[in-house]
Each structure stands twice: as structure tokens, then as C-alpha cells.
């Protein structure tokens, strides 16, 4: 015979587990419940639920460009040995310093592009959305909005690589004159939208 009344302390509720944290690698683009991610204005009871940034495959153009640049000195050396060197007036030390400066420039460019990718992130907590923009070496911007102020969320997946590697742009429109948020080339945008909408539902005031 089924029980009609079960006291609340005897209900068959599943045991409450602490949220399982996922470790965030150097090249991670999307991570749920990331471990060791925080920001300056984070409140004590606020947890980062989602960490996102551009898909790593979007770094392919500058990586290819750097590889091409790195082959240029050896390519020039091969051409000059075949055709004849027009820069014979240059001393060996000049050539060495020039090569070192060139390689240093390529490394600096690659490092800057990597930093640009690494620090352009979006964070989602149970209360807020945080957008960190690292535009260039001398400018960075951190925008934060509450989930309650979000009016519309949508995503756009376009292009061959976007469809192949499953990444797209997530747009978050906020109320009034608050800035809108856009997270470009985020992996699995439909899941991101799903998580944001679920959190928005939780964040809405009841009654």
C-alpha cells in the first residue's frame, strides 16, 4: 500500500553532492564549473558556472602567418645563394643582428596574438555575465551585467569552419542603455545559450 504521507525528513531525496569542478587547461575554450577562475568584483558566494572564449581553431590564421614568417630568412638565404647576394656590403654581424631582431619580432607578434586570445573571455556566474575584452596592449575593458537585466539571447553559427568545429557567436542583449555582450566564435553556442536561459529562469523573481 503506498504511503499517503511521508515526513519531509524521510523523503527519498538524492544526496546533495558538491559541484564537481573541471580543471581549465591553457588552451581550453569552454569549461563548465571551471576550477581556479575568478574575477575582481566576484562576491564570496558567487560561483563561476561557465567559462568561454574563442575556439582555439580561430588562432589558425595568425599561427600560419607566423610559420610563413619564420621560413622567410632561410628562404631568402637559399635565393641569395642561388642568384647572388645583393647585400654584400653588409657585415656578418649586421646579418646576425637583423635575423635576431626579425625572429624576436615574430615571437613578439605571436605572443601578443596569443595573449589577445587568452584574455578575451566571457564568464557566467549564477547572478551575472562578465565580458573581458583585451583589445590591444594598451587597452582592456571588463563589462558586467546582472542576469535579470538580460532581455534577449541568441547565437549565430556561420561559415565552413564554424559548422565543422561547432562554434558560433553568442549575443546577449541587455535592457535600456546598458552595453550588449557578444562572445565571438564560442564553442558549442547552443549549449551556452541553453545554460544562460536556464540561469535566467532561476534568476527571475518569483511571484
Amino acid at each position: 500500500m503506498p504511503d499517503i504521507f511521508v515526513p519531509s525528513n524521510q523523503k527519498n531525496t538524492p544526496p546533495i553532492h558538491p559541484i564537481e569542478k573541471n580543471s581549465l587547461g591553457l588552451f581550453s575554450s569552454l569549461c563548465k564549473n571551471p576550477d581556479g577562475v575568478s574575477f575582481t568584483s566576484q562576491e564570496t558566494d558567487e560561483e563561476v558556472i561557465l567559462f568561454m572564449r574563442r575556439h582555439f581553431i580561430t588562432n589558425l590564421p595568425w599561427l600560419t602567418f607566423c610559420l610563413i614568417l619564420l621560413t622567410i630568412p632561410s628562404l631568402l638565404g637559399a635565393i641569395f645563394s642561388a642568384v647572388g647576394n645583393p647585400f654584400l656590403f653588409l657585415e656578418n654581424t649586421h646579418t646576425i643582428i637583423m635575423s635576431l631582431l626579425f625572429y624576436a619580432g615574430v615571437v613578439a607578434y605571436a605572443f601578443l596574438e596569443f595573449i589577445h586570445w587568452y584574455y578575451n573571455i566571457g564568464l557566467l556566474t549564477q547572478n551575472r555575465v562578465v565580458d573581458v575584452d583585451f583589445s590591444d596592449l594598451l587597452f582592456h575593458d571588463i563589462s558586467i551585467t546582472k542576469l535579470g537585466l538580460i532581455e534577449d539571447v541568441n547565437y549565430r553559427k556561420s561559415g565552413f569552419f564554424g559548422s565543422l568545429f561547432n562554434y558560433g557567436d553568442v549575443f546577449i542583449q541587455t535592457a535600456g542603455n546598458k552595453p550588449n555582450f557578444d562572445f565571438i566564435a564560442v564553442p558549442n553556442p547552443s549549449e551556452v545559450i541553453h545554460i544562460i536561459v536556464a540561469l535566467m529562469g532561476k534568476d527571475k523573481p518569483h511571484g
Binding site: 580543471s23 581549465l24 587547461g25 591553457l26 571551471p34 576550477d35 581556479g36 577562475v37 575568478s38 574575477f39 575582481t40 567559462f51 587568452y118 584574455y119 573571455i121 564568464l123 573581458v132 583585451f134 582592456h140 571588463i142
Partner: peptide
């Protein structure tokens, strides 16, 4: 500056 405003993992 960025590491002080946003902390993304310890090792990276």
C-alpha cells in the same frame, strides 16, 4: 594587470 583583474587558473 590582467592576472590581477581576472584569474584564469594557477599554472597558465
Amino acid at each position: 594587470t590582467m592576472n590581477s583583474s581576472v584569474h584564469i587558473g594557477d599554472s597558465s
